[in-house]
């Protein structure tokens, strides 16, 4: 599904080159649940941004289902983000002024053609994360765990090829975290490809594969089961 070969990222600040990622090589198969670990400042976020097409690598190639994405322009990257990538953020990033349902529908603002069953899909997803009764609430009326569930429904609504989650439980208590991880387990069982950044080993334990970054390079890549 995802093939990274020799992905590098170097920031240029004030004429000084700061390398953040060095020749990252790995592939993620369809349906895999991968945890991305490593100490702060090792380039996890940068790698996630590249995987999520929010940032471009300064070297190497990124293929999705065999298609090279590094040659796409900004419009092309946006279209692929919209259709093929679902984001779950640590801080939920819900739009406070619109309802839970409208938040889940947000990706469809940018989808061509607009799917005729958009609302049904969004409702079904909210049901599946246990928020069927709260669809018309504003996000502020929900708990953190519930807000993150809305965000997961939003990430899934356009049936993306990969889910990118950046410390999705980092802002939640243990009960809410448990609920969120259960949902991730479930969507993994349903065959989704998931890449999740986390600091916590017990969160990483939900993944079948843990890739550890150190100083901008892959330090270890372990598969379980």
């Amino acid at each position: 599904m995802i093939e990274l070969s020799k992905i590098g990222k170097t920031y240029l600040t004030g004429g000084v080159e700061t390398p953040v990622l060095h020749a990252i090589d790995f592939t993620v198969e369809e349906g895999e649940f991968v945890a991305l670990m490593g100490p702060s400042g090792t380039g996890k976020s940068t790698l996630m941004n590249i995987l999520g097409l929010l940032d471009r690598p300064t070297g190497g190639t990124y293929r999705l289902a065999g298609q090279d994405l590094t040659t796409l322009d900004d419009n092309g990257l946006s279209a692929i983000r919209n259709k093929r990538i679902g984001f779950v953020f640590q801080l939920f990033h819900l739009l406070p002024r619109v309802s839970v349902l409208q938040n889940v529908l947000l990706p469809f603002l940018y989808t061509e053609p607009y799917p005729p069953d958009a609302k049904e899909r969004a409702r079904a997803l909210l049901q599946s994360v246990g928020l069927g009764e709260r669809m018309n609430f504003k996000p502020n009326a929900l708990s953190g765990g519930q807000q993150q569930r809305v965000a997961i429904a939003r990430a899934l609504v356009n049936e993306p090829s990969i889910i990118l989650a950046d410390e999705p439980t980092g802002n939640l208590d243990s009960v809410a975290s448990g609920e969120i991880l259960e949902i991730f387990d479930r969507i993994h069982r349903e065959g989704r490809t998931i890449v999740m950044v986390t600091h916590e080993p017990d969160v990483a334990a939900h993944a079948q594969r843990v890739i550890t970054l150190k100083d901008g390079a892959v330090a270890s890549d372990e598969r379980r089961n």
Partner: peptide, 16 residues
């Protein structure tokens, strides 16, 4: 700004 970042992540083009 965060709203704009979110929308870009969800697939908004610059022109959108």
């Amino acid at each position: 700004v965060p709203e704009i970042g979110l929308k870009r992540a969800l697939g908004a083009r610059q022109r959108d």
